[in-house]
Amino acid sequence: MTNFARTLTAAAVAAAALAATPALAATSATTPATATAQIVKPLVLTAKQNLDFGTIVLANVTANTNVSMSLAGVVTCGTGLTCSGAPKQAIFNVQGSNNQVVHIYSATSTLTGSAGGTLTFTPTLPAGATVTLTTSGVPGNDFNVGGSFVIGTATLDGVYTGNINVTVDYN
């Protein structure tokens, strides 16, 4: 009786031992995967030069006509307008992490005239709407912004000013 009992015990132990063996050993699979996080410095955007279209004379406006400024600050006056003065493009400076491609976004904004009246200003961004940083932090990289607006037969004279809507992002 004792032998049998002992045998049973051994079997139980063995069975228990078998049960404890991780059954996954025969079927598990392992594959390496990577986790990535890009750590970058925050972007800093500064306006270095404000945009100025100069003086536009409403010589003979009979229909909607465009005034546009290139990235280089050259103003093109539409039909019925005479442009003069010292136009300048906007210049922005962006700083962040070296070698990063920074995306530039823009939206239209409203210029308000000193005699009342408003104009809608549409910015013109550099080709590709990106700038690549070549330094970490200071001095950063500059980029130009031009833009345009439309003058109509009802446009009032005056000095028109407003903000330029430009943002930058890493993505």
Binding site: P42, L43, V44, L45, T46, A47, Q49, N50, L51, D52, F53, G54, T55, I56, V57, L58, A59, V67, T82, G85, A90, F92, Y105, S109, L111, G113, L119, F121, V145, G147, F149, I151, T155, L156, D157, G158, V159, Y160, T161, G162, N163, I164, V166, T167, V168, D169, Y170, N171
Partner: peptide, 20 residues
């Protein structure tokens, strides 16, 4: 994106429109 950055103070655009 919560990381878009604006210039502060903002850049401005100006145009002087005058009668002949």
């Amino acid at each position: 994106s919560t990381t878009a950055v604006v210039a502060s103070p903002a850049a401005t655009a100006r145009a002087q429109i005058v009668d002949p």
